[in-house]
Design a binder for these strands. Structure first.
Length: 898
RNA sequence: GGGCAACUAGCUCAGCUGGUCAGAGCGCCUCGCUUACAACGAGGAGGUCGCUGGUUCGAGCCCAGCGUUGCCCACCA
């Protein structure tokens, strides 16, 4: 029993870590375990009345290997940041985990693994055996993937596991398919599709990439079928694929082409097969290319297929799915396609039909998975009719019901959606969702079962029992498009679905806006009658230097290794800090080092504040460490940093709310490092030695740390939690949250703007004194005397200036080296080097005069005084007055030098 | 062919609704191992914000044109 209770508390490793450096590895792991075990990542089981929800689906990583930096940015950077922020706001937060079966990609990976063992998939294994291998791979990699998500600190609700191939999702996909089939969105048709000879499957337009290649362009003469008509030119076409000549069914010319228009309708003979084919007129033909005459091969070229459709031309298939020439290829039959090309060229040359050849650089379609050159083929495939599905999805964005950030991606979205084409969804691979359609061997009827009904055993038309299920599977994106509702239980009307659909944010890379985001919006509206999420947050790509990171380039950085060395916080911070959402970034060691140093800085500020808290236990007898200290009795530095804390709370909140995560991260570094550490911590040191100030200082340090930890928790969950646990231990009210994870995001309290302004002057004076000291070569440990010209502006801060500069501060008079800060004379009592000093003062004088002139010019612009807002005019006048006064003082100082 | 973005310090990049917006990190120079931190501290150098016009009292910030680079879409045989 005692054991159990102990296990429910925070991990000892976090509570006891005290080292000079933030040493994360074991602490992070223990903390994550504790968070997960404690159920912090699971939204409350029952909805509270009027609860606000924050729902975000993990962009399901492919189960094909380890996470890379792009995942780290997406999951550990932006998403977990948002999830943790909203959880702290008190929203019922669901960050849904899951993995994608990754269809063809996963199949390729496993095939390669099998090949290493000498097993050929197609010949060495049955389909069932191969799928067993696939599942074995999944069993290994899903836990591995998820372990890495835990390392990143992602606050996913693991009590709701998901996999696109789990039984519930298979059922959902079946429902979805049958639903779309019944309402006419899915149909089966013979069309030209992209075919991959390596993967032996079709693929969609989105998966076709283009590469520039240089190939020979052959000019081939097509003889006139009945002898050349009077005045007719030779018909010469240009092609890079002479082996497809055997499948030609026409020659097309542009009807606007004067060279050819009058010959439309005449016939020519296709070389090699001597087929009579017509010359047709079609506007798709580019007048400027080659001779202006285009051979038409509907069976092997997408453009030609469309031209063929327009002119009612037949389709001849001369190349089979293995890349061999079919019997229809005549003299080329049986040859492999490259050999066939050679042979075609030879024969054409022999027959005097090859006029010439020249090199051509053109874009060649390749499969984005294996870079095999596309072999367009006409095949019977399942297609999804997209325009009707796209229409309401376009409207959802246009009307603002779905918002895309950064907004300029909305244009990209519209551009694609408004020109959307039907989507071939069947794939000739084994790993994936089965197509719930059976074909009758007797009458060829398509038999589609009830969504939850048994598989059909009898043809609905002829009653035959000789049925065969469609052997193809569905494209991976077919199932991932359903992610926002299938993870919540659709097609059943579950409690989760009612409570968490529509979701809130969908965060992912802009590279899958079409593949995934657009399709989720379409399918969500189709199946649920409502959008799947209200905001799409798109991030950019992580590059190594200026190069894209990719496995083939070998410049992929492993997040796992980074985390083990420096902690997840540093990695998360490095990826987010200072980056504009949606913009590509170049990742570098420098960025990571800064992040690691910052995590360490925070850690050490924490150690210092903790020590102060421990030294003054009485200060916290009746005052919680996370409570704002009452201002009564606090000195200026305490009041100042408290005011800055509130400014930071307000600004951090604003930046996160507006998706400016990069700026939020930068803001936190500027506050914690430059203000809290460099200024306030230094000012607190004498404060702690001063019995009258000490309690207030300790309370202020505790509060400033507490607020900093809360504000940083979304981006640096581990350091912040470790410090919070150590700070809070026994020093807060008993009903307070047990963890930063479930603590409250701060609401800003009042600032003291006048004090902040006075402190800004003090800081400038301090910097000037330090600079003068250093210029004069004074040893840092030597105490100097400083005389300040303006008592009223700074008398309140004299002791703080003194402690920050190791000086005795007095007002008025004095001698030694000098400068002017704003309108305050600053004089450090050391021997002055007249020549150097004169040069420095003259430069300052010149700069100030130039600055004053700029203000004068602004003020003198016609219309400025009348048309600019009064505050602006007043501000400019005050600025001029200050600069003029500074000029006067600098001149006086220079005069004194003589 | 169409579309989208970027061009700010040596490098990589921030600059929200036009009025200290000329910034950060890294790098560089000069000091300093002071009891939170050398994974540190202090000080400093460094930019006519791609070019040309325009709007405005006022423009890295808005408009137009141009230049350079990158990306996306598209039926270059």
């Amino acid at each position: 029993m005692a054991m159990t209770e102990e296990r429910q508390g925070p991990p000892a490793s976090a509570l006891e870590h005290r080292g000079k450096n933030w040493a994360p590895a074991d602490v992070e792991r223990d903390l994550y375990d504790w968070w997960e075990r404690s159920g912090f990542f699971t939204p409350p089981a029952e909805p509270a009345p009027g609860e606000r929800t924050f729902v975000m689906m993990l962009p399901l990583p492919n189960v094909t290997g380890d996470l890379h930096l792009g995942h780290a940015l997406s999951f550990g950077g932006y998403e977990d940041l948002m999830a943790r922020y909203h959880r702290m706001l008190g929203d019922a937060t669901l960050y849904m985990p899951g993995n994608d079966h990754a269809g063809i990609i996963a199949q390729i990976v496993v095939e390669k693994e099998l090949a290493k063992e000498g097993i050929e998939k197609r010949t060495g294994l049955t389909r069932e055996q191969f799928l067993a291998e696939m599942w074995q791979w999944m069993d290994h990699y899903i836990p591995r993937n998820n372990a890495q998500l835990r390392m990143l600190g992602c606050s996913l609700d693991w009590s709701r596991p998901n996999f696109t191939m789990d039984p519930a999702k298979q059922r959902a996909v079946r429902h979805h398919f049958i639903r779309l089939y019944r309402n006419g969105h899915l149909y089966r048709a013979d069309r030209i599709v992209h075919w991959c000879l390596t993967c032996q499957t079709t693929y969609s337009d989105l998966e076709a990439k283009h590469e520039d290649r240089t190939d020979p362009l052959y000019y081939v003469r097509y003889p006139w079928a009945d002898g050349a008509p009077d005045g007719a030119p030779d018909v010469i076409v240009a092609t890079t694929r002479p082996e497809t000549i055997v499948a030609d069914v026409a020659v097309a010319v542009n009807p606007a082409d004067e060279r050819w228009s009058r010959w439309i309708g005449q016939e020519v003979l296709v070389p090699l097969v001597e087929r009579r084919v017509p010359i047709v007129g079609d506007e798709a033909v580019d007048i400027g290319f080659g001779t202006g005459a285009l051979k038409i091969t509907p069976g092997h070229d997408a453009t030609d297929f469309e031209i063929g459709q327009r002119h009612g031309l037949p389709v001849i298939t001369a190349i089979d799915p293995r890349g061999r020439m079919t019997p229809a290829a005549g003299i080329l039959a049986g040859a492999e396609r490259n050999a066939a090309r050679k042979k075609a060229v030879e024969v054409l040359r022999e027959r005097g039909l090859l006029i010439r050849e020249e090199p051509l650089t053109h874009a060649v379609g390749v499969h984005d998975r294996c870079f095999t050159v596309d072999e367009p083929l006409v095949m019977k495939q399942w297609w999804m009719r997209m325009p009707p599905l796209a229409a309401p999805a376009i409207d959802a964005v246009r009307s603002g019901r779905v918002r895309i950030v950064p907004a300029h991606f909305e244009k990209t979205y519209f551009n694609w959606m408004e020109n959307i084409r039907d989507w071939p969804v069947s794939r000739q691979i084994w790993w994936g969702h089965a197509i719930p359609v059976w074909y009758c061997r007797e009458c060829d009827e398509q038999v589609v079962p009830e969504p939850d009904g048994p598989d059909p055993v009898k043809c609905t038309r002829c009653g035959s029992t000789d049925l065969r299920q469609d052997p193809d599977v569905l494209d991976t994106w077919f199932s991932s498009a359903l992610w926002p509702h299938t993870t919540l239980g659709w097609p059943d009307r579950t409690k989760d679905l009612a409570r968490f659909y529509p979701g809130t944010v969908l965060e992912t890379g802009y590279d899958i806006l079409f593949f995934w985001v657009a399709r989720m919006i379409m399918m969500g509206i189709e199946n649920m009658g409502d959008i799947p999420f209200s905001t799409v947050v798109l991030h950019g790509m992580v590059k190594s230097g200026t190069e894209k990171m990719s496995k083939s380039r070998g410049n992929v950085v492993s997040p796992v290794e980074y985390i083990e060395e420096n902690g997840a916080d540093a990695l998360r911070y490095a990826l987010v800090n200072g980056v504009s959402l949606g913009a590509d970034q170049s990742f570098s060691d420098a960025r990571l080092q800064n992040a690691r140093n910052f995590a360490n800085k925070l850690w050490n500020i924490g150690r210092y504040a903790l020590r102060a808290v421990e030294q003054r236990p009485d200060a916290f007898a009746s005052h919680a460490v996370d409570a704002r200290p009452p201002l009564d009795g606090l000195e200026a530095p305490e009041r100042w940093i408290l005011s800055r804390v509130e400014a930071t709370v307000a600004e951090a909140t604003r930046l996160i709310e507006s998706y400016n995560f990069g700026e939020y991260a930068s803001l936190m570094q500027a506050f914690v490092w430059n203000e809290l550490a460099d200024v306030y911590v230094e000012l607190s040191k004498p404060g702690l030695r001063d019995e009258r100030r000490a309690d207030g200082v300790a309370r202020t340090l505790a509060y400033a740390l507490d607020r900093s930890l809360r504000l940083l928790h979304p981006i640096m969950p581990f350091v912040s939690e470790t410090l919070a646990l150590q700070l809070w231990q026994g020093r807060r009210k008993s009903d307070a949250a047990p963890s930063l994870v479930v603590s409250r995001w701060p609401a800003p309290a009042a600032r003291d703007l006048a004090l902040e302004e006075r402190f800004a002057l003090l800081a400038e004076v301090v910097r000037a004194i330090r600079s003068l000291r250093q210029d004069a070569g004074v040893d840092p440990s030597d105490r100097v005397t400083v005389a300040l010209g303006s008592a009223e502006a700074l008398r309140w801060g004299a002791e703080h200036i003194a402690s920050l500069t190791n000086a005795d501060v007095s007002f008025g008079g004095g001698d030694g080296t000098a400068t002017v800060v704003r309108t305050v004379e600053v004089r450090v009592q050391v021997r002055r080097d007249a020549a150097a000093e004169r040069a420095r003062l003259e430069k300052e004088l010149a700069d100030t005069r130039a600055a004053a002139d700029r203000v004068r010019a602004t003020l003198a612009k016609p219309g400025f005084a009348e048309r600019a807002p009064k505050e602006v005019v007043a501000k400019e006048r005050a600025r001029l007055a200050e600069r003029e006064e500074r000029i006067r003082m600098l001149e006086e100082e220079l005069a004194r030098l003589r």
